[in-house]
């Protein structure tokens, strides 16, 4: 646990990091300092600079009073998705959160709650990469003689989902795993629901992932509280354009009596002739992963 008095913390900062536009006001950050053994908020006060984002202040902390503060960042432009944190209790990108747009008073900066902490503001997000491996890849049919053709309206449909920068804030805020760690092995999360939706809406894809997303990836666990959409820095309509359409596709397959009757009469499978049920290739959650 590292806690420094605010007054003490601000002294080296003014000496080591000259600021372009200082005012009489100060910005106070309560930053989570800790590791898997424990931690606490440490408070730092620095002179406020006009137009700064939270990541700027964190960098000034690293340059001054807290040189050992661990923080993951990269582009500082809201495009790499590295600096996700919980600012005043809400998942946000530190590089896109202006200090002057936050309410007056100390600003709390904590690591993402859903993932195990490594140190300070850095978390282990490998859960997401493990889930990413489980999504069956794009699987086009053999190319026709004239090559693949795709209309612009079909191209545009999936573009929204491709804006995802994998900041994993949607995963962080999703209460299914945020508040219930035991659900992690059976719940892929919003980021991978949009990946699956993107593939399911691709006219050239031949995988049918409906059973997979329902039975193994926990689509039914989502209760549509839309927090993923609220925190998405790319403003992807995760719930309306990906999760609910996927839920409706699951209804098509499993909860639609008219569809079921139609398939019986027409002797059709719920998977179209050009599709392959993706669930057969699903390896399941890692048996080595503890459930709790």
């Amino acid at each position: 646990m590292t806690t420094e008095p605010a007054a003490l913390a601000s002294e080296p900062e003014t000496a080591t990091a000259p600021v372009a536009d200082t005012t009489d006001s100060t910005v106070t950050l309560q930053v989570w300092r800790g590791d898997p053994d424990g931690g606490a908020f440490a408070e730092y006060s620095l002179p406020a600079n006009e137009g700064e984002v939270v990541l700027d202040v964190v960098h000034r902390l690293q340059a001054g009073p807290a040189p050992d503060l661990a923080c993951r960042w990269n582009c500082k432009a809201g495009k790499c998705g590295s600096c996700s944190a919980e600012i005043n209790g809400r998942p946000r990108l530190m590089c896109m959160t202006r200090v002057d747009e936050l309410p007056p008073g100390p600003i709390t900066v904590a690591p993402m709650r859903t993932f195990p902490i490594i140190r300070d503001l850095v978390t282990d997000v490998s859960f997401n990469f493990a889930m990413a491996k489980l999504v069956p890849a794009f699987s086009p049919p053999p190319p026709p003689a004239e090559g693949y053709r795709m209309q612009q309206i079909d191209v545009e449909r999936g573009q929204e989902f491709r804006k995802c920068i994998e900041c994993f804030m949607c995963q962080d805020v999703c209460h299914v795993i945020r508040d219930h760690e035991e659900n992690k092995p059976a719940y892929a999360g919003p980021r991978f629901f949009i990946r699956i939706a993107e593939l399911e809406m691709h006219p050239l894809d031949t995988n049918d992932r409906r059973d997979l997303v329902r039975q193994q990836m926990g689509l039914g666990m989502c209760n549509i509280t839309k927090c993923c959409t609220e925190v998405c820095p790319e403003h992807i309509k995760i719930t309306d354009n990906a999760i609910i359409p996927m839920k409706e596709r699951v209804v098509d397959a499993d909860f639609d009596p008219v569809g079921w009757l139609g398939r019986k009469i027409l002797r059709r499978s719920k998977t179209s002739p050009t599709e392959t049920a993706a669930i057969s290739a699903y390896p399941g959650p890692s048996p080595s992963a503890p459930a709790g």
């Binding site: 989570w32 898997p36 606490a40 993402m112 195990p116 902490i117 978390t123 080595s288 503890p290």
Partner: peptide, 20 residues
């Protein structure tokens, strides 16, 4: 690929919310 860690210690305060 490193095995996924499930059940690791979480960071941040152990309270229902930090939202103000």
């Amino acid at each position: 690929v490193s095995p996924v860690t499930i059940g690791g210690t979480r960071g941040g305060p152990d309270q229902p919310t930090v939202r103000k």
